[in-house]
Design a protein around this nucleic acid. Structure first.
Ligand SMILES: Nc1nc2c(ncn2[C@H]2C[C@H](O)[C@@H](COP(=O)(O)OP(=O)(O)OP(=O)(O)O)O2)c(=O)[nH]1
Ligand SMILES: [Mn+2]
Length: 552
DNA sequence: TAGCCATGCCAC
DNA sequence: AAACGTGGCATGGCTA
């Protein structure tokens, strides 16, 4: 069981099989690990063809043969979810340059991401027992291996050959977006591995203070007979006091979100809101960091339909509140680049809107213009909040939002915009930027006629046909697909920057922000990657919370 | 008791 | 909420 072939290898003997393996110039590879958390390798399979794979257990006397193949930079390694497998194979020092990843390609083409589902969608049949396989709820792969090693090694062989099979099936459809993602695999691995240092004293202080506040508020609110964590109970308590609350969209309970509670002048509503604010900070942002020297995350590179990265597991580092970022410390010094108005620049180019492109050439700041024209600048004392609201209004309009959205978002910040002003704001966009207006119609046509859209570099998003056919949900699908090429193209430009600066120490990525540690990539490195300019704002600081803008 | 869904809210 | 888009996490409440 230390070496075994599985699949259609005909009458070949072991030496013949190993010979075939060693002479292949492209191979499918899969690894099995103790568990998803513990990436200790149980063994690996190599497939010299889409017909069969060969298993090598971690302690196999033949393992050196597998490793010599994986170490050979002339052999193309086809890895399904390469980011994971490179981590698994890290201790063995394999070649990390010559690889392909059909999972990334499937993702780029908006195809199924689970290997078996993808293979099935491409016409392959998968034996039922492998389709049904799931690691038992409390178990580990290691336990399965000890129980039934034959099953594990056969599954590994199947996965290796299917990876290769899917690669050959999909490679005719390859688009530049694929290479963009492939080129940041190791950048992401390095970010995940390095993590970010934490100011543990500060984390503890925050936590203790929040704990006092939430404990007090929870106690206070419970004397009124409700648990502030239970929206159901909060809704009932307020209703008993005589407040008429609307229902949630499922009509199961009363709406008690911030928008509703902030309009109720009652001590219960006020204290619940305060409790929520503190509890969110405590449980989501402080608690998970207690006792940690460094914060690590996983950057998911195949999860977002537009092509953005996402971050999760154990923590999402892409939604840390600004007022909490001070606990994230540079090892030496943070150099943070944030792209300016990036999606507006992207849509200006995609729509070929001469006016908007010209505005950017002239150094205009559209978010700032909206701040001023909608009276946000004067009414919100905090310029950061003012800019945030202006962004919300701008993107809402650009992405086919209606008057209500403009009015309601402004109202949340205490700014009154009349229906007339909201209409004017919207109409002005199509008047001032006729290119954007026409682009909306051409995209509508693409979506309706072809049923899919693409980013500048070819990434695909298909329309959900079921929702597209239903008149109630159709517009919603159109908005999703209208947004995708813009958000997707912006993310591609950022990814190209990440790849270009692979020699620098990227520690955090938040969509259009890249935080480097120690050495600052020169701004020139990031220029000229896309057919439209994407100016970056550089800030420097000891922590993520005290970044100071560098005036260029 | 584990896992799913809804709700709410943090970021871009 | 039907009414800009893309995510992830904590929590309560319920079911398999
Ligand atoms: N649809 C939509 N997209 C958003 C929203 N907020 C942010 N984004 C997208 C579009 C932005 O260009 C991109 C990066 O966010 P930023 O906060 O950095 O804003 P932006 O780059 O536009 O402005 P900046 O010059 O950096 O202040 O994320 C939003 O509310 N709706
Ligand atoms: Mn930005």
């Amino acid at each position: 069981m230390s070496v075994e072939a599985y699949g259609d290898y005909g009458s070949r003997g072991l030496s013949e099989i190993l010979q075939e393996l060693t002479s292949a110039s492209i191979v499918g590879v899969d690894t099995e690990t103790h568990s998803l958390d513990d990436k200790t390798m149980i063994g690996l399979a190599i497939a010299p063809s889409p017909e069969y794979g060969v298993w090598f257990s971690e302690d196999s006397p033949y393992l050196h043969i597998a490793l010599s193949i994986l170490r050979n930079p002339k052999v193309t390694k086809v890895l399904y979810n390469s980011k994971f497998d490179f981590d698994v194979l890290e201790p063995f020092g394999i070649d990390e340059t010559n690889f392909e990843d059909p999972m990334i390609l499937a993702y780029t083409l908006h195809m199924p991401l689970k290997l078996y589902t993808l293979a099935q969608s491409l016409g392959e049949t998968i034996p039922q027992n492998y389709l049904d396989f799931k690691i038992p709820a409390k178990g580990t792969m290691l336990a399965v291996w000890n129980q039934d090693p034959n099953f594990v090694l056969r599954k590994c062989c199947i996965d290796a050959k299917l990876a290769l099979w899917c690669w050959f099936k999909l490679v005719p459809w390859i688009v530049p977006s694929y290479y963009i993602d492939k080129n940041i695999v190791h950048v992401l691995r390095n970010m995940e591995k390095a993590g970010v240092a934490l100011n543990q004293e500060s984390v503890n202080e925050y936590y203790e203070e929040l704990d006092e506040q939430t404990t007090y508020l929870r106690q206070l609110i419970s004397t009124k007979g409700c648990d502030p964590n239970s929206n159901q109970q909060v809704g009932i308590a307020l209703a008993q006091k005589g407040y008429r609350l609307p229902y949630t969209k499922t009509r199961r309970q009363l709406r008690v979100d911030e928008k509703i509670l902030s309009n109720i002048d009652d001590p219960l509503a006020i204290s619940v809101l305060l409790y929520r604010e503190k509890a969110k900070l405590q449980s989501t942002y402080a608690k998970p960091l207690l006792g940690l020297e460094r914060a690590h995350t996983t950057y998911n590179n195949t999860r977002v339909v537009t092509g953005r990265l996402s971050s999760s597991d154990p923590i999402n580092m892409q939604n840390i509140p600004h007022y909490f970022r001070g606990v994230y410390m540079a090892d030496e010094m943070f150099y943070s680049y944030d792209a300016s108005q990036i999606e507006l620049r992207a849509i200006a180019y995609l729509a070929n809107d001469k006016v908007m492109m010209r505005a950017f050439e002239d150094g205009e700041d559209i978010h700032k213009a909206t701040m001023d024209r909608m009276g946000i600048t004067g009414k919100l004392s905090d310029p950061v909040m003012a800019r945030r609201l202006a962004k919300t209004l701008n993107f809402a309009v650009v992405y086919l939002g209606e008057e209500e959205t403009i009015i309601e978002n402004a109202k949340k910040e205490g700014i009154r915009i009349s229906p007339q002003e909201a209409t004017d704001f919207r109409v002005r966009y199509s008047e001032v930027y006729p290119g954007i207006r026409d682009y909306v119609w051409s995209q509508r046509e693409q979506i309706t006629r072809r049923g899919y859209v693409t980013t500048l570099y070819g990434r695909v998003r298909k329309a959900d046909t079921k929702r597209m056919q239903n008149p109630h949900t159709r517009e919603s699908v159109i908005k999703e697909l209208f947004n995708m090429p813009v958000q997707g193209t912006a993310s591609e430009v950022i990814k190209m920057m990440m790849a270009k600066a692979h020699k620098y120490d990227l520690r955090i990525q938040v969509h259009d922000e890249m935080v480097y540690d120690g050495k600052c990539p020169p701004p020139s490195l990031f220029e000229g990657l896309a057919p439209f300019a994407t100016p970056l704002k550089l800030s420097i600081g000891q922590s993520w919370g005290d970044l100071q803008v560098v005036t260029a």
